[in-house]
């Protein structure tokens, strides 16, 4: 009897105490949607890196003779699998470059906003007092301007380059992370392990970096995956409005915007990049969603 009791107790303990992020990841990995998302995402990353050279066609080469070629299956041929645009450039190659740019901007900006936002939020939550008040009011103010409005204003008025785009996205996106990090920190700083570290004599910086950060950041980072998708959409929107990365570099937004003029007779010009973008976003969102659900389930289960 005692043996049985001991075994149930220890499994419960293991469940509660496996490092949170590892448990989250393995739980997420067990779901179909995570795997689907994972394979889509990494397939597309490989394609966007290797694809353009594999296809053997230049994404920027003009060819008036080959303009408006439809994709294979709609009357096109295999030289341009997914057709060409109004200048005869290969759409698939252009879209893949667009995907690469979108990924770079999406990932870089999310990493940036994660670092900046979490740092500010953690400090605010840990220190408290007027510093917290000040930081959180700034956060609220920044949050009260929707991302897109801020991006349009800044980029519309200055000259958009990849670096300014990333900076603007970070500027617009950090407050959400600051908020989350602060609210997690508020509950975390009351936990016993933080008290224990204080009693040992650890300095505040040490407690923040060595003790608390490894505990609270991974779950926030997991959900940040979803933001990569959001930022990729915003990058496309900026390109569409004409304030993203400037031509001739292909981006999803600019290709889609070009295609609007030819919607009636060359529907594939907007459809190809749009579909590719949608599929990659699906991949990222399925992964991020599975991670988010795994996290919620775990947090519910523990409390």
């Amino acid at each position: 009897m005692t043996g049985e009791l001991a075994s149930t107790a220890s499994t419960a303990e293991v469940r509660a105490q496996r490092s949170l992020s590892a448990t989250m990841f393995t739980n997420a990995w067990k779901t179909t949607e995570f795997r689907i998302g994972f394979f889509i995402f990494f397939g597309l990353i490989v394609l966007s890196i290797a694809g353009p050279s594999l296809l053997g066609v230049s994404p920027t080469k003009f060819s008036v003779a080959q303009k408006f070629m439809p994709p294979v299956g709609f009357g096109g041929d295999w030289s341009h699998i997914l057709g060409t645009d109004q200048m005869g450039r290969d759409l698939f190659a252009r879209s893949l470059i667009g995907l690469r740019n979108a990924l770079i901007i999406g990932v870089t900006s999310v990493v940036g906003m994660f670092v900046v936002g979490s740092a500010i939020g953690m400090i605010a939550g840990y220190v408290g007092g007027w510093i917290e008040l000040l930081l959180m009011r700034i956060t609220d103010a920044q949050m009260a301007i929707p991302v897109i409005i801020l991006a349009i204003t800044i980029l519309g008025l200055s000259r958009p380059t990849p670096v300014t785009i990333i900076c603007v996205l970070i500027l617009a996106g950090w407050p959400a992370y600051a908020r989350t990090a602060r609210s997690v920190m508020l509950s975390e700083r009351r936990k016993e392990y933080v008290r224990a570290a204080k009693i040992l004599g650890a300095s505040n910086i040490r407690i923040l970096l060595v003790h608390i950060a490894p505990n609270i950041l991974p779950p926030i980072a997991f959900v940040a995956v979803l933001d990569v998708a959001r930022m990729m959409i915003i990058e496309a929107i900026l390109g569409f409005i004409g304030i993203g990365i400037q031509p001739p570099t292909p981006t999803f937004g600019t290709i889609i915007a070009d295609g609007t003029k030819y919607l009636m007779n060359a529907w594939w010009i907007t459809t190809v990049p749009g579909l590719l973008l949608t599929i990659s976003l699906c991949g990222i969102n399925l992964m991020g969603g599975a991670l988010e659900r795994a996290r919620n389930k775990l947090l519910q289960g523990v409390s």
Binding site: A236, G253, T270, L277
Partner: peptide
């Protein structure tokens, strides 16, 4: 919801 959130609004608008 995964599909909805993956549809870029401008593209959906055009389609």
């Amino acid at each position: 919801s995964s599909i909805f959130v993956s549809l870029p609004n401008i593209w959906l608008a055009l389609v």
